[in-house]
Design a protein around this nucleic acid. Structure first.
Lengths: 211, 211
DNA sequence: AGATTGATCTTGACGCCGTTCAGATAGGTG
DNA sequence: CACCTATCTGAACGGCGTCAAGATCAATCT
């Protein structure tokens, strides 16, 4: 029976499990948070046995790496989208920063996995590596344009790192509930983000990259 | 036999286990890293059964909280020590920042536990809370003095948060090995830290707290 | 077509984890 | 002294990551 109902669902032994596992992991992350993300739970969610993932990933870490990879793609898109929202080049850095932190707030569990994967290996996250079209390059090239050609490249590099540190720090801390009062006083979450970013030199067009 | 040899070691049933457990945990953190830090391993290291810790801590999280508490005390001392190393008030913020990041580099596993405890609860770490003599107050009061009385308090607050975000981000990222080349080029680890911090507005005396 | 192959998945097991509970131990108090 | 209570142990539970052995099945070869 059922010769080839193959509309979409299970074309092979079980389907392409690799993708299914990554999506199951993301579903668990969104609905139950990082602590619920066990390999067995992912297999359960995908409807396979606990050992099945080992035919597609060396170990749990490699599955998480795949999840993180999706996350960095999403974050990269979000940051690139800032180009459309920025009024001019001067405002672009702020918009990128806001995009970054807002992404981390919309996907807190995913963001945590993204960074934990990096720290476990002491390696830069993919999105921060110096590949072409990486998010890192987007930030650095924005800095380069804002700063002009007379600024030494090492300063561009350091400013990019500094900006990323600040954005990452804010991403991890902005959810702490002790800031709720201040957020209300400033008029909401985004005003708070812009307020903090505004006090970091490089997120203000007028004074960015003073050597 | 041995009526009261109580010099230091085991005055009671097993000694004051609570402290012993926290110290055992710190020993494991330093020698084997955060992933090796299981409750059972801590009990083993302290020479007691796996269930013994439950008479002193509600669960594993509460033990980690105690470890983190020690860590924030240490970090607070380190930051306060910056006062002696700073040439003038203008340089103080930079020295505090350097102290912060250097602490995280000297105790990476401990620093990770310190922050993970906070994020698990969405609560500010102790050292960042607005208690008197907290590290947060040290930073904020430094800003207040540098900025002068005409700067609104909300900007002092935002600048303090921004500085902390940047320091935390740098603390977490400075160990990534992709920065090794840049560090060598700049003349070492500390030069790298000062380089990055120098590109953050609030760590430069001359331009800190521009409203 | 039928046999073979190799990738995919399951079953069952191992050791470790966090946690609980009944019972042993022993200091402090009457 | 006997009792009480805090402390600690031993054994157990379910869940975890991982692995080895066997079942299943698409694809390939003859």
């Amino acid at each position: 029976m059922r010769e080839a109902a193959a509309v979409e669902p299970r074309p092979y032994h079980h389907g392409d499990l690799r993708r299914a596992l990554v999506e199951a992991a993301r579903r668990i992350l969104e609905s139950e948070g990082p602590t619920a993300l066990s390999l067995r739970a992912v297999a359960r969610e995908a409807g396979v046995s606990p050992a099945a993932p080992y035919h597609h990933f060396k170990d749990k870490g490699e599955l998480l790496d795949a999840v993180a990879h999706v996350g960095w793609d999403m974050l990269g898109e979000s940051m690139n989208g800032a180009k459309e929202r920025a009024a001019d080049l001067g405002a672009l850095m702020t918009e990128i920063g806001v995009s970054y932190v807002q992404f981390s707030q919309q996907h807190p569990a995913l963001y945590r996995v993204m960074y934990d994967c990096s720290r476990d290996k002491d390696e830069l996250p993919e999105g921060m590596q110096d590949n072409e079209d990486s998010a890192y390059c987007l930030v650095r090239e924005t800095f380069r344009k804002v700063a002009g050609p007379e600024v030494p490249i090492v300063d561009i590099e350091l400013a990019t790192i500094a900006a990323w540190c600040a954005a990452h720090g804010l991403a991890e801390m902005s959810t702490f509930k002790q800031f709720d009062g201040l957020k209300i006083g400033l008029g909401g979450e985004e005003a708070f983000l812009r307020g903090v970013l505004g006090h970091l030199g490089m997120f203000q067009a007028s004074k960015s990259i003073k050597v």
